[in-house]
Design a protein around this nucleic acid. Structure first.
Lengths: 209, 209
DNA sequence: GTCTATAGTGCGATAGAC
DNA sequence: GTCTATCGCACTATAGAC
């Protein structure tokens, strides 16, 4: 009940770091409690079989408040995507000026990979829920597409021009997706950053002329 | 009103190529009329501002019939994706045995590109509608992800092993997305197949070690 | 072909913090 | 007074159940 948002996930944790809310009237961390309740219920009975009313009830809040924090029932699982995007973008921007576009995004993905590695149990649980729902898979794809666009824009700030910037952003996400898939598959014990490095090597081999 | 489904779109047209209706081919079936009405209404007033009831009414059918033909309000714009997937998959399978994985998907995308080129006006209209709705963008992304998986499976039938197959499928879709984006942008007059070729060249340059 | 559950929206009211 | 988090209620449309 009073589990702080930081334990819920790398993603949801971001919401609590903005500022602290001095309150007596309501229990603090509504958004974190809602995210925690949603994660539990989606895991227990599946996404489709969970109503927003049930999530709100478990969090000690009302349905209306849920929609105040999350635009829809799916968003509660993706509310931390902004933190991931910021990490990727900042890593690209801060990459050495000597780095090629592909090297810059490789650095960014490595940084993100480390974050996921540190929260593997949560990542697996969350991914299991997402894999069980077409609606959630859709939302995940749009978040990944957003990351591709953000990466492309970050590359443009480095002076990379189109269409190289756009293409490199898309490729980075393609590599990440393949690597993440292998990471989640139980028969592969490599770390996510390692899988990402291997995938980039594979990419070079596949596209070599 | 009596516009046959074949003129609506490459995608929607596919429903007609699966088998021929017993009578009056020029009198479009319910599915085609619904697809046509939906395309018109989504274009006229936007996706969100169109109700299924309105689509059904314009098609001279009931709301219930709409959901019998299309699983949801969005699917009416994507009902022909199967034909595109078949084309891609078959082209990969039929590619010369000497073709590398990346060459095989390049052939497939070229074939698809030609199809789009022949229906550019429709493609632009449809894309404009999709770009205007987050829900529709989500559905488009899941269709593209499905294509990536299908391409990967087609490559596996050629003996390509993982993770090369999966990675090549994802890369193909990334290239297609970038190329399609440029094709839709009015300031680029190259054909889609040409843009795809150029993007593959760009890919080699970007990933060269 | 009708009925119903549920997602999601709009607006007003409340009650603390400042 | 303003601002913000929450609640409550009425409402629409989707989508599935019967």
């Amino acid at each position: 009940m009073s589990v702080p948002a930081i334990t819920i996930s790398m993603m949801s944790a971001a919401v609590n770091t903005e500022y602290t809310w001095p309150m007596v009237r309501w229990e603090p961390g509504s958004q974190g409690r809602l995210a925690q309740a949603a994660l539990e219920l989606y895991g227990e009975r599946g996404f489709d079989q969970t109503t927003v009313a049930e999530i709100a009830e478990r969090a000690g809040l009302t349905e209306r408040t849920f929609f105040r924090h999350f635009s829809d029932k799916r968003e509660v699982l993706f509310s931390g995507a902004q933190a991931l995007q910021d990490l990727l973008v900042n890593t690209v921007i801060d990459a050495p000026t000597t780095a090629t576009p592909i090297e810059a995004v490789e650095l960014a993905l490595a940084a993100a990979g480390n974050l996921f590695d540190e929260r593997k149990a949560f990542s697996l649980q969350r991914q299991h829920i997402i894999d069980g729902s077409a609606e959630l898979r859709e939302r995940e794809l749009i978040k990944l597409a957003t990351l591709a666009t953000a990466l492309a824009n970050a590359l443009r700030t480095r002076g990379v021009s189109d269409p190289t910037a756009g293409l490199t952003g898309e490729i980075a996400i393609a590599v990440f997706r393949i690597s993440f898939e292998q990471w989640v598959a139980s028969h592969d014990s490599r770390s996510l950053p390692q899988l990402i490095r291997d995938s980039f090597d594979q990419l070079s081999a596949v596209t070599a002329k």
